[in-house]
Design a protein around this nucleic acid. Structure first.
Lengths: 339, 339
DNA sequence: CTGAAAGCGCTAACAG
DNA sequence: CTGTTAGCGCTTTCAG
């Protein structure tokens, strides 16, 4: 393994000079630079990043925290898409991504704090926003840069980037109501995730604004958002409440499952029942019928979050900031006009 | 920042002792261990990983090389799923994942070699197998551990894990032929990727075995595998060759696009045309009609690859090895029996 | 079972 | 514009 010292020796200069060449210091003559660079090239030199990180106390890595039921997490195209956005931006700014996986709350905290205190990462991107998040408390305590993708409970205490879930949700429900739907079933995930709370809020807002009565029986919240459970749930709901004219799924993947559950009961979409989703997965334009949904601009979300994090790391931001990424309704063919 | 020395001082022991406690050396008395551990806990100590890596010359990170058109890469659920598998196994063995993103061949090489020679990663997982791969040449030259997910051109010179693409492809074509199909159109991606070559080979094998004539016009290879291009291509093929009775898409996502292209021309699946895919994406059971495809066991693929890589890193493997992960046909409702 | 000391490869004053 | 030197925080001989 050839080191900086070897280069220095071969070039007949001091180690510090080589170091300066590596960092392209302006205080080194072009002549020495080219000479040293040539030798580095010849000897196939690459700086040892651990050594550099050790002294600089900076790693140029971003830690990525993905919900710990990785099992489920990656099943949703949301994560692929946001990873892509994050990857592209991080890379353009000279950062690599360290995926911090885990199998539970405690372990997640441990993994992340190890990387943080071990100076393996310069900042953390939290791809989820939940209540009573121990991790963000710890991170805050030690004043470590992190950005939440989603809305934290206390909105003024953190850096975060989010969709306007409440308003977007309100608008998609408005859309259904405009089409004459009054009995709209909604299936939500774990209410410990703020996203579900916000989207439900939008639903409620829309109903109130339109002077419609909310039927609590049509609002179902479940921690188990896997295919099978949602499938059963959807079928049970329609059986128990044949008055339902539309389903609102908290995500497109959930909507697909609902679609299948209906089809299998010979309930036609959109003739017999209307369905809307949320997220605008790439697949949603391909399923049949193509799904009306909310485009939450995942790419922009990841992009902005990463940009913000890097700015925070570089100390370019003074006070807590957040960005709301716009969402818009994508109208396709999964809803019927009842009017 | 509290360091190992601080702990040593507070505990009244030598730094080396603390280090041994951290690494749970058997040569330290339980008594000192508990004493030191207690103090570490109290002071919120976490070892500096860069320092450790520097002296150990080992990082416990695996480098993940994803095809550089990240743009496309992440669009395919294949990557989510394999990332999940890799994440789970890596984590269980105490490794983290460093995502190495880039925007082109040269840059990819640079990024990876920097991480490698910079001792930031202990091994590399290549999530693609292509011909004339400069990167694997470099890695081989410096004898750095890496595992290819896919089949390299020279099968006996590397560690790799793959599906039996040739045979699986042959079987899915057999399946179509058994159902009476003789004019089977196939759309393939870039022939620089060995996977496409192998799957085409399977197609050819099946035709030959069944004494059927191969019509070159029905085999289309394209570097542009985005939705729009495939859509246009599929429609053009069926227009030019109305004798086609089945489409074989090189991946499920491609098959979805073909399905849509057909639907939009009012060609019914499977009544008018049969379609098969490859990969068995989670979505394939939900699209309509549910897609007949080949399950390539992505999870196992990622799992085995990671396991192999870690074994190689740990020097537990002596000579080049490879694993073939089995694939099996998932029969659903996208094919018609012509007999 | 524990301690002393050298050093991993790099950067950053400080000096010149 | 360049060199000298002292660490960054840890592990690892080698002694004892």
């Amino acid at each position: 393994m050839t080191t900086l010292k070897d280069i220095a020796k071969k070039a007949g200069v001091a180690p510090s000079t080589v170091s300066r060449v590596i960092n392209d210091s302006s205080r080194i003559s072009e002549k020495t630079k080219t000479k040293v660079r040539k030798i580095m090239e010849e000897m196939g030199y690459h700086p040892n990043i651990n050594a550099r990180n050790l002294v600089k106390q900076r790693s140029h890595n971003l830690g990525l925290v993905i919900p710990y039921s990785t099992e489920k997490a990656f099943a949703d195209p949301f994560y692929s898409e946001i990873l892509r956005a994050i990857g592209v931006l991080a890379h353009s700014k000279g950062f690599n991504l360290l995926l911090l996986t885990s199998n539970g709350e405690e372990e997640e905290k441990k993994t992340v704090l190890n990387a943080v205190k071990g100076k393996q990462i310069d900042g953390v991107l939290l791809l989820r926003a939940k209540k009573e998040d121990n991790l963000i408390n710890e991170l805050t305590k030690i004043n470590f840069p992190f950005v939440i993708v989603g809305r934290p409970e206390e909105t003024s205490k953190y850096y975060w980037v989010n969709n306007d879930n409440v308003k977007a949700s309100e608008r998609i429900v408005d859309y259904l109501i405009d089409k004459g739907h009054k009995k709209i079933a909604v299936i939500l995930g774990d209410d410990n995730y703020i996203l579900n709370e916000d989207r439900l809020q939008g639903y409620v807002n829309s109903f109130q604004k339109n002077n419609l009565k909310i039927d609590q029986d049509l609002i179902v919240q479940t921690k188990k958002i896997d295919h099978n459970n949602i499938y059963i749930l959807a079928q049970k709901m329609i059986k128990d409440h044949p008055e339902i004219t539309a389903f609102y799924g908290m995500s497109d993947t959930m909507a697909y499952t609902i679609m299948q559950a209906m089809s299998d009961m010979n309930i036609k979409i959109p003739e017999d029942i209307s369905i809307v989703g949320f997220n605008n997965n790439p697949m949603s334009k391909i399923v049949s019928p193509p799904l009306t949904t909310v485009d939450i601009n995942i790419y922009l979300l990841g992009n902005k979050a990463t940009e913000l994090l890097i700015a925070v790391i570089n100390g370019q931001i003074e006070k807590y900031e957040h960005t709301i990424v716009p969402a818009n309704i994508i109208e396709r063919d999964s809803c019927k006009n009842l009017n």
